[in-house]
Amino acid sequence: MKGLVIWILRGSESDESVLDELGKEIGDRGGRVEVFHSGTLKNLGMTDNHEAKVAACAMVASHGVVVIASGNKSSGIPSGPELAVREVSMDDLRDEVRRASFMRNLELGGLVPPPRHDVHPDEEKKILARLKELGYLEE
């Protein structure tokens, strides 16, 4: 799978649990994922600033990994043949509908695997209703 950097624009917030939740969702789908928290570079003994984080993210992602990181400004990493970059706001990821749409677009673009379940639980309810309407199942 092509490498991907998901760069989350933090704005005034710094809640990093959103990064972890997104990482877990992609990991649950079977994607290789790495989450860069604010202290990750420091813990690795590296300088922790915007440029260093951008360079590290691009390098890791270029090996076919989904890298999730956040910053107060755009990463500036260009998308290319080996690496895709998607920027998204913290607010978008907090909103269930916008987050689902973001993930769906990544899936349709072949950047993250489809979900493991064959039918989403919400969709399953609608399908059951249709099957009853068509007479496949009793009311």
């Binding site: 064959d118 039918v119 969709e123 399953e124 399908i127 059951l128 249709r130 099957l131 068509l134 007479g135 496949y136 199942l137």
Partner: peptide, 17 residues
């Protein structure tokens, strides 16, 4: 249209049955 079930629908149907 009343018989046109896609794979997600048949899978839900089989599980329900």
């Amino acid at each position: 249209p009343d018989y046109r079930l896609d794979p997600r629908e048949t899978r839900v149907l089989f599980r329900a049955k």
